[in-house]
Design a protein around this nucleic acid. Structure first.
Lengths: 240, 240
DNA sequence: AAGTGGTCTAGACCACGTC
DNA sequence: ACGTGGTCTAGACCACTTC
């Protein structure tokens, strides 16, 4: 350590520890030494060690747990999510044999705002449903999605939201159509605090944000959604 | 400020300052107060102010400059990049009327590794070219791309790399084909230090990583590339 | 020379988990 | 009671920009 300089101390320490994890010195689901131990080991202030750990956390190598220690993450091959015209979350997970759940966090009905009207091609004063849905596998939160649906197209949606299990299923079973993905806009960003808490990640871990517009097979836009997804555990594959 | 608690100080300060920027209290390309001023204003330690500024930086609101101050970023509508079977960087920028440049950072020739062989469907011992290309608009770095090309398909590539201006142009003008995007894998992550320096962003600003496989019109894979792109200034639109 | 952001040290108190 | 990570204070020195 500290063989040569120019670099920043905390980043050097982070890289050193990551190399150790790679080499198996610290193995998966085990703890790395405590912050105080690392301070002694590298002869630096605790603040520096904490910056190093923050960097490793953001890169997805470890997750610190208050009162317990700093655990090495499982090196999971990121879940692949295929984006094509007709795929939805539930189908993707099923095709990979992953058990998943979708939970309706909240919903409301209201008058469409300007952006919602533009996206869904609605008239002024049109009403929409707004849903917040969280998706998880094995109790690991994957994504939080805000979905906007034109009320006109979904009569009595309220009655189908009890015992919610999958939005897709409601489309198919209750309204008898299969939405078609029209376009998606993908972006990397940091989560809002609210989303970070829901996804159970620090607010400095990047997320993928996918803004989607789905069409009715007939052609009209029927669903506008913004999904915020853990960046480290997921890959989005686009096939042509 | 500090009307109610439970929140974390530095995050509260960050949100407060962001609100001020939104409201125009601090306008684009102007400076926010210095760290020391903010310390006095909020009656907190400089460390806390720095954490708040770090948060704002990561979210893309400001960029601190050593010795000068902390500037409010221009609220640019992110550049949209359309991913479809046949689009490439140069075409995207041209279609949006943006002046751009592509610079060849380095290149080398070598024996294909396992992953490269798998992606490009090459035999053991096959040789490849590896290029590092940086793309910018108006001196703002946009992306760094590592590209792997099978040597067999690109005879005398070296001679075409002098006065490099666009990989796409070389494909078209020298080898007379137009590659077709086969698949792309999109991910949000943090940049390596090397890439962060090239892209001129802090190492904690998220980037979009797009791993692409391009095919020869005849069907054979012809280009494998991994692009690392500034997350805040870009949107990737996928159309169907 | 003075002011700015970048990094590091030293030490405190708290919330949480384990014993 | 003790160890862990989470947050904050106080103060130092440096590199860089501006005057």
């Amino acid at each position: 350590m500290k063989t040569q300089d120019d670099g920043v101390l905390h980043l050097e320490i982070a890289e050193y520890l990551i190399k150790q994890i790679r080499q198996g010195v610290f193995s998966e689901n085990q703890k790395i030494p405590s912050e105080n131990d690392l301070c002694r080991q590298f002869q630096v202030n605790r603040h520096v060690v904490r910056q190093a750990i923050a960097r490793m956390t953001n890169l997805g190598w470890v997750t610190p747990v208050q009162g317990r220690g700093c655990y090495v993450n499982q090196l999971v091959e990121p879940i692949q999510y295929v984006l094509s015209s007709q795929t939805r979350f539930s189908e993707n997970m099923e095709s990979q044999g992953l058990p998943y759940t979708a939970k309706l966090l909240s919903w409301e009905e209201g008058i469409a705002g300007d952006e919602e009207r533009a996206n869904l091609e609605l008239a002024e004063g049109a009403r929409v449903y707004r849903l917040e849905i969280m998706r998880s596998t094995d109790d690991n939160p994957l994504s939080v999605t805000s979905t906007v649906l034109p009320k006109e197209e979904f009569p009595d949606l309220e009655t189908h939201l009890t015992n919610f299990s999958s939005l897709y299923r409601i489309f198919i079973e209750q309204y008898r159509f299969r939405p078609i993905r029209k376009k998606s806009i993908v972006q990397a960003c940091l989560p809002l605090l609210k989303d970070a808490k829901l996804l159970d990640i620090p607010e400095s871990v990047p997320i993928v944000q996918i803004e989607s517009l789905m069409n009715h097979p007939g052609g009209a836009p029927i669903e506008y959604s913004v999904a915020r997804i853990r960046g480290d555990r997921h890959k989005y594959m686009i096939e042509f």
